[in-house]
Amino acid sequence: MLDVALVSLIQDMSEKAGVEGTIQYWLRVGENLAKRMGKEAYMGWPSFNVALREGRTAFSIEGNVIALTDLAITDVDGDVVGYLYAVEKCVFEPTILRVRYSVGQLPKADKQVADEYNMTYRDIAVCNFCIIHTKFREEVAKNITIAGQPLEALQLANRGFTGETKIDEENLKKIGINKEYVRSLLRNYACVFALVMKGARLKGEVSEE
């Protein structure tokens, strides 16, 4: 019930505090959630990817997160500094269905909040919940170290319940992945992001300099 009640609160809150106020709340929730999950340390990428597969990392709260280990991200020296990850099913999808079958339809605020976020922050949200988990991933990545180095999360693409997609071309450029390739991943996954070692000299970033 909590999730369905939350959705109706989004409408209520957006009417009272404005959609910007809702975004601020969601960003704080994403941050607090990551903070409460604690820190993690792994010897290397293989041990992290195994932990992820077994649902032992903080990222696992989102559901089935798959490490696309065939898609390694390398730095200017050719060393592996990260991987692409995909969420099989949108975190918000069960709630959307539960709202559909208990209340009838999602409140307008869901789209309004996402649209406002896309206009004022970055154009990546397909629903209001994208705000929480995008922030959550960014903060969780800071709490995880691999071989002593903290991670950085780069949101790459999202697919919404009705099939609309959002792709962050700037982040794709940083890691040197083709937009059409990521779009093809969205056929099988709802959400694609990259985890890279913070401070890594990524090809896309270096070529920009």
């Binding site: 909590l2 999730d3 607090n32 709260i61 918000f92 269905l97 539960r98 929480i132 988990h133």
Partner: peptide, 17 residues
């Protein structure tokens, strides 16, 4: 159709906020 744990926990954290 079970709710995702992240949505439930996010709601609790929102209320704590």
């Amino acid at each position: 159709i079970l709710d995702n744990p992240m949505v439930d926990i996010a709601t609790y954290l929102f209320l704590e906020d």
